[in-house]
Computed example of a mutant assay.
Amino acid sequence: MRHWLIFPVLMAAVLDARAPSAQQVDFVVDATLPVRDTELPYTLDLNLAAVAPTRIGVGALLDLREIQKTVPERLADNAIVDNCGLQARLDDLSFGAQGDAIDLDGDVTITIFECSRTSERNFQRGEQKKAILANMSTEATVELRDNCAYFKLIDLTLTAPEEQREQLLDDDTLDSVKELMLAAVDLVLNDTPLCPKLPAELASLDPVYDNGGPKEIGEGGLGVFLEGSVDVSPSTILDILTVLQRQELIPGPP
Rank of each mutant, 00 (worst) to 15 (best):
P53L: 01
P53H: 03
T54E: 12
R55M: 00
R55C: 02
I56E: 11
I56M: 06
I56Y: 09
G57N: 00
G57R: 02
V58Y: 11
V58N: 04
V58F: 06
G59Q: 12
A60D: 10
L61Y: 14
L61W: 15
L62T: 07
L62V: 03
D63P: 02
D63G: 03
L64D: 02
R65M: 00
R65S: 03
E66R: 08
E66G: 06
E66I: 02
E66S: 11
Q68A: 03
K69P: 03
K69I: 04
K69H: 13
T70Q: 13
T70A: 05
T70H: 07
V71H: 07
P72R: 03
P72Q: 10
E73S: 05
E73D: 08
R74S: 10
R74T: 12
R74N: 12
R74H: 13
L75C: 02
A76Q: 07
D77H: 13
N78P: 02
A79N: 07
A79R: 02
A79W: 12
A79P: 01
I80A: 08
I80M: 08
I80E: 07
I80R: 10
I80Q: 07
V81G: 06
V81F: 01
V81L: 01
D82Y: 12
D82F: 08
N83V: 06
N83T: 10
N83W: 04
N83P: 01
C84H: 14
C84P: 15
C84D: 12
L86F: 06
A88E: 00
A88W: 09
R89L: 04
R89D: 03
D91C: 05
D91S: 01
D92Q: 10
D92L: 02
L93N: 04
L93F: 13
S94K: 09
S94W: 09
S94E: 12
S94F: 13
S94N: 09
F95R: 10
F95I: 10
G96E: 14
G96A: 04
G96T: 03
G96W: 15
G96Y: 15
A97S: 11
A97C: 12
A97M: 12
Q98C: 07
Q98F: 15
Q98S: 11
Q98Y: 15
G99N: 08
G99H: 09
G99Q: 02
D100Y: 14
D100S: 14
D100P: 14
D100W: 14
D100H: 13
D100T: 13
A101Q: 13
A101T: 07
I102S: 02
D103L: 13
D103V: 14
D103G: 00
D105R: 15
D107Q: 11
D107P: 00
D107Y: 11
V108F: 05
T109P: 00
I110K: 05
I110M: 04
I110R: 08
T111Q: 09
T111E: 14
T111P: 11
T111L: 05
T111N: 03
T111I: 05
E114V: 02
E114L: 03
C115Q: 05
C115N: 05
S116C: 03
S116I: 02
R117A: 06
T118P: 11
S119K: 10
S119W: 14
E120F: 15
E120Y: 15
E120C: 01
E120Q: 12
